[in-house]
C-alpha cells in the first residue's frame, strides 16, 4: 500500500519525466510507459474485445494523455491515464451494447461463462492449483454490469482509491463502494463453494 509520501514522490517523478520528454528525451517516455504498463494494459484488456484492441487503446491512452497535458497539470498521472482509459472503455461499451449477449464469451475468454465457472464438487485447492481461480473470478466479474465491473478492475488492476474511482465515474464515494460490494456479492454467488472456501486455501 502506498503512503501519501510515496505518492507525492511518484507525482514529482512523473512530472520530471514528462518535462524531460517534452525536451526531446524519448527514454523518459519509455520509463513512464514501463511504469504504468501493467496496470493500464491490464485494465484496458478487461474491456477490449481482444489483445490487439487493448494494445491500440493503450497507445491511444498515452497519446491523448500527453497531447492534453494542459488538463492534467502534472497533478496525478495515473488518475489522468485511467480517466482516459475509462472514456475509451465507456465509448466501446456504448458501441457494442446492441450486440452484447449474456451467453457470449466474456472479453478475453475463449468460452462462455457457464463453462468457466467451477464444476460442482471441485475443491478450492484443485482450483487454485490449476491457476483457474483467478480466471474464474475474472470471468464472473466480466458478467457484471459495466459500472460494477469497472469499479472492480479500477480497484484491483489500477489500484485506484475509491475516492478517485468515484470522481472518475462521477458518483459519490458511497455509490462507488456500493458498486464494489455488489460486485463481490455477485462474485460470491457465481463462484459458490469455491468462494466460501477461499480462506481455507489462503496461505
Amino acid at each position: 500500500m502506498k503512503t501519501s509520501g510515496e505518492h507525492a514522490i511518484n507525482m514529482v517523478d512523473d512530472a520530471k519525466e514528462l518535462a524531460a520528454y517534452r525536451r526531446g528525451d524519448t527514454a523518459a517516455l519509455g520509463r513512464l510507459v514501463a511504469k504504468y504498463q501493467r496496470p493500464l494494459f491490464s485494465f484496458l484488456s478487461r474491456f477490449a474485445a481482444n489483445p490487439d484492441e487493448a494494445n491500440d487503446w493503450f497507445q491511444e491512452t498515452w497519446v491523448r494523455a500527453i497531447r492534453n497535458m494542459n488538463f492534467f497539470r502534472q497533478k496525478n498521472l495515473p488518475g489522468w491515464l485511467f480517466r482516459i482509459a475509462h472514456n475509451l472503455a465507456v465509448d466501446a461499451a456504448r458501441r457494442r451494447r446492441p450486440e452484447e449477449s449474456l451467453d457470449a464469451a466474456p472479453p478475453g475468454s475463449p468460452a462462455p461463462l457457464g463453462e468457466l465457472l467451477p464444476a460442482a464438487g471441485l475443491s478450492p485447492a484443485a482450483v487454485v492449483a490449476g491457476h483457474d481461480l483467478g480466471q474464474q473470478i475474472t470471468a464472473a466479474v466480466n458478467r457484471l454490469p459495466f459500472e460494477q465491473r469497472e469499479v472492480f478492475w479500477l480497484r484491483m488492476d489500477a489500484g485506484l482509491p475509491f475516492k478517485e474511482i468515484a470522481r472518475l465515474q462521477r458518483c459519490s464515494l458511497n455509490t462507488a463502494l456500493g458498486r464494489m460490494q455488489y460486485a463481490l456479492t455477485r462474485l460470491r454467488a457465481a463462484l459458490g463453494p469455491a468462494y466460501r472456501e477461499l480462506q481455507d486455501s489462503a496461505p
Partner: peptide
C-alpha cells in the same frame, strides 16, 4: 482474508494480461 485472497488471485502475474 477472503478479500485479500481475491485480490491476490486476480492480480497474480500469471493471469494478468500482457501486452502483445
Amino acid at each position: 482474508d477472503q478479500l485479500r485472497h481475491i485480490t491476490r488471485a486476480v492480480t497474480a502475474p500469471e493471469i494478468t494480461p500482457t501486452m502483445p
